[in-house]
Design a binder for these strands. Structure first.
Lengths: 353, 353
DNA sequence: ATAAAGTGCGCAACCGATTGCATATTTAAG
DNA sequence: CTTAAATATGCAATCGGTTGCGCACTTTAT
């Protein structure tokens, strides 16, 4: 019932007839404090239900043991999973994390950094918003000596360590796979934004076509926001072409799902008529019919690695300032029914005979 | 390059030949400070790139403007979405949120509360872990006067405000709907845990059957962890019965998806042979074939309401201590193909004729 | 013209833990 | 038995804002 007992080290000190300094040292296991004192302090602390005030310690030490995470949104499977990975590592090192969502809004991203800086976080791990093209707010915090590590949505305009997956390789593998499955007119859904991940996926698509002697057809590359509805619209656009594609590689799983709906609604078969592949390995991809071929980004691992990289820099201190380091994770092609054109066609033939 | 300029109000005061008190007041728009002084202070603050130190203010005020959120896991769609809702409201009121995951682990939940208390969060919003049956750690924080609000996974053992959805009603609606669709042997997947949400869903199932004159058959209630694999196993068990069910209501969407896979693998049709319904409206439920009928929990709304309730109590202060208040949200039945038995059967008949 | 009210700002304590330096008490060394 | 070294603890400043109280000066009312 009593609202606030608020036990401090001074209370403990008083009852034990010693000073707060001694209590502080006893609680921190300082070597110059006798075992007897330590024990009695710790015992009393427990019985008084003493709760250390990290705020006071933080003020004195200039260290809060909190790191800030900025993501476009925390409720997308990919980011949620990365956050989980970061939190796991941070917790092990006795750090807590503050999550902030930018909603892909530039102004909110700027405000968020300000808020985190005022909260005196020890560092920031961020994934840049889609609409961010000016990075001064990040530069400002770097000038203040706050460690920063970027993941997934990164930029080369900042001198900073980053963790990302090899989007180029992932895309290349997908397209190569589609070609092996017999696809020859392969469309691609991409984003108009200047986000590197999408540019890299597009590059992988283009190169895989070229390396396999398939001509690049601009009409087959459709730009959109890559959500479900966009995928539907893009697919409708493609089906209206004189020569419709026999496969689609969408830079997002959502886009691919939209395409799948439209393909089926038009009485076409996946993968026989149109093979499909997405990117991201969202949980729902394994539940569609057929299940969607996609690229796994190892989001949990990415979170862990990002956090480890962060703490590596962090411990090195702002002086020794490690050289920014770019970690590129290899993505994995997850082959499922939606792209297995060859096998599906073969099976169809067998059925007929 | 310079690591830490670290501008404080004292620096500003010095350059302006005034005191820190005045600077502080000027920055906080105190009425007793002249407009002229305010302007010059604000101007210099900006040009010096002054960053207020919330830690210092927090120490003095005993208020950090940070609230802690404890969830079993942040990477499940439901929780991620609730978090997003909470953060949205909190941000508007100039609060930040610290996220901690208990992983449904009792010890970690206890530690987490300790860590949040040491971080001096102004309050905690939590969803209790599956394995938590002792609530002393929550009681301890309540004794310290830290506001607490629970959502979804709640308990009546604590005198605390809570927000949840009407699981009973949701389940009742689902089962009623299945009956209307012609189902008569309706199975139910539930959890062996003593978590209220699952008990409530079971209760809704039982009552809906009773109210519609359908006998309750224990053999049709299968307990498991409700994940995809569990759903598969449970469905296999049901199909092995002499009299197999003609519908399944799973207390989780994952379980329902597993069931759908098994039903189809056995050459049976959804919903004609076995109608299916889940609970939660996970994103993937709209992508299966047929799409899964389920219950929407309005997770984003739940987050917002929980946060609003929290701040209501918070502002009332620890003295006036509002009466704990239980907010129950009405869930919504989301009817999709997997349960439309009547229509599917009718369509089949029409095709034959 | 003088008291009362209003305005603008400084002084100094405070929040709670940390830590360099000083002091007092033992213990070990010579 | 004296001195140096080790041990145990205290003192007081510090981190950076915040705020009650007080002082000086200006404006308004009587």
């Amino acid at each position: 019932m009593s609202s606030k007992p608020k036990v401090t080290i001074h209370d403990i000190a008083e009852k034990l007839n010693i000073t707060a300094s001694t209590v502080s040292r006893a609680l921190n296991d300082h070597p110059r404090i006798s075992e007897a004192t330590k024990k009695s302090v710790q015992k009393l602390a427990k019985s008084l239900n003493y709760q250390p005030n990290n705020i006071a310690a933080a003020l004195r030490n200039g260290k809060t043991n909190i790191i800030g995470i900025i993501v476009p949104t925390a409720d997308r499977a990919f980011f949620a999973s990365v956050i989980r990975g970061i939190e796991e590592i941070a917790n092990k090192l006795n750090y807590k994390v503050i999550i902030s969502q930018s909603n892909d809004n530039y102004e909110k991203e700027v405000q968020t950094i300000d808020a985190l800086l005022s909260a005196r976080v020890d560092g920031i791990i961020a994934s840049i918003g889609k609409n961010t093209e000016n990075f001064d707010h990040y530069k400002r915090m770097q000038e203040k000596g706050i460690p920063l590590v970027l993941f997934d949505r990164t930029t080369d305009e900042l001198e900073v360590s980053q963790v990302m997956i090899d989007d180029y390789l992932g895309a290349y593998k997908v397209v190569e796979h589609l070609i092996q499955q017999g696809a020859r007119r392969i469309a691609h859904f991409t984003s108009p934004k200047k986000v590197s991940v999408f540019k890299e996926r597009l590059r992988g698509y283009v190169d895989a076509l070229r390396d396999n002697g398939i001509p690049y057809d601009e009409a087959l590359v459709v730009k959109s926001n890559l959500q479900l509805e966009d995928g539907r619209a893009s697919m409708e656009q493609l089906l209206a072409l004189a020569e419709r594609p026999d496969a689609v590689f969408s830079a997002s799983d959502y886009g691919a799902m939209g395409a799948m709906q439209v393909v089926k609604e038009n009485g076409l078969r996946v993968p026989q008529d149109v093979a499909l592949a997405g990117f991201g390995n969202e949980p729902f991809t394994s539940f569609s019919e057929p299940a969607l071929t996609t690229v796994d980004q190892f989001s949990l691992t990415m979170g862990r690695i990002t956090a480890e990289l962060f703490f590596e820099h962090f411990k090195a201190g702002p002086e020794k300032k490690l050289v920014p380091q770019k970690t590129v994770l290899k993505p994995e092609l997850v082959v499922r029914g939606s792209s297995l054109k060859a096998e599906a066609l073969k099976k169809d033939t067998e059925k007929l005979s």
